[in-house]
Simulated assay, not measured.
Amino acid sequence: MTFEQLRTFLWVARLGGFRKASDRLHLSQPAVSTRISNLEDELDAKLFERGPGDLVLTKQGQQLLGYAEQLLYVEEEIKHRVANPAETEGLFRIGASETIAQAWLPLFLQAFSVKFPRVNIDLTVDISLNLRAAILERRLDLAFLMGPISEYSVKNVALPQFDLHWYKDKQLGPIDLSEIPIISYSSQTRPYRELTSELARRVGPKLRVFSSASLSASLRMIAAGIAVGPYPRVLAVRHLEANEIEEFDPGFIPPPLEFTASYLAEPRSLLVENGAEIAREIAIDWHRTHQN
């Protein structure tokens, strides 16, 4: 019995199938099947039954799962305590919201690459709703998103908040929110729901709210005088420096955007835990120098 067999068994059990495990482990499906078959032969026990959809653990498989998690946890501890991080290899799948991507994500990638120079990074930039789904489906290892993810299996590391500021085309005069559209985040996000709820109460039936998953496109619409809206200052910097937009006060400010570094707590990965901690430190430093 080897660590590789146990690791393969663990991922087949966690993901519920050979194909999903082969994608996660970057192995061919026959290689995964062979490892499981050899493990079953060595233990003289059937570990999986074919269910209506995914594979289902047998009683012996359930027993082995607990031991496999313990052994692989010890392996992670050894790597963390003894091994040189610079020798760590593998693929690290990171997801980030556009706000993070335009703020401190490049600094994080630089710091992470310095500590883990042999780890390859696969980066996804998307809305938080999709990043959440990717974490829960194990398609991402770590995500920087509007959180937290309220699932018992997810660990959320709090990151600094982003204050929101209202922006308008600099050529526009005083703003009446009942006469010009407001543009916000995607309609599937919490900021959009909170903003539309508050504005409906303040503005009434004349309210018009646009939504866009592309924050850069939203700021271009504001700069063109099509709409106004509240966004983190980091997204507006280019347009502010070009003297295209300016901040204004409509009488209220939406609550700050809350972000987390979120990942599945089991099976434990010290690479992911290190990544989340590096992100927290980088984000704190960035906000200390950039947030006003």
Rank of each mutant, 00 (worst) to 15 (best):
D126V: 02
L105C: 04
V125K: 02
E87D: 14
R93D: 08
K79W: 04
I127D: 06
P117M: 02
K115G: 00
L129N: 10
T88K: 07
R132N: 14
N84M: 07
R81H: 09
P85E: 11
S113C: 03
E89A: 12
Q110V: 04
E77P: 05
I127G: 05
A103F: 01
V82E: 11
V114W: 09
N84A: 03
I127K: 00
L123M: 04
A101W: 01
V82P: 07
P85R: 12
V82C: 08
L123Q: 06
I78Y: 12
P85K: 10
L105R: 08
Q102H: 15
L123A: 04
T124R: 00
I100A: 03
A101E: 07
P85T: 13
P85S: 07
S113N: 15
D126H: 06
L109W: 03
P117L: 07
S113T: 15
S113G: 15
V125S: 03
F92G: 13
R93L: 10
V114A: 12
I100T: 04
F108M: 08
E77H: 07
I100M: 07
H80K: 14
D126N: 12
V119N: 07
R93C: 10
E77N: 09
V125C: 05
Q102F: 11
V125L: 13
A96T: 10
K115L: 10
V125Y: 10
I121C: 06
P106Q: 07
L105D: 04
F116S: 13
D126R: 00
L123C: 06
D122M: 05
V82Q: 13
A86D: 07
I94S: 02
L129M: 11
W104T: 09
R118N: 14
L105Q: 11
N84V: 05
V125F: 07
A101N: 06
V114G: 00
G95Q: 08
S128Q: 00
E87L: 15
L105P: 08
E89H: 15
F112N: 10
A96H: 10
L131V: 01
T99N: 12
E89K: 15
F112H: 11
L129V: 06
E89G: 09
H80I: 02
E77I: 13
P106S: 08
R81W: 09
A83R: 07
R93S: 13
K79E: 14
S128N: 12
V114S: 06
N130C: 05
V119K: 09
P106H: 01
A111Y: 03
F112T: 04
I78H: 13
F92A: 03
I100S: 02
S128H: 07
A111V: 03
V125Q: 02
P117K: 05
L131M: 04
K115W: 01
N130T: 08
V114F: 03
L129W: 06
K115S: 01
K79N: 12
L123V: 03
V125W: 06
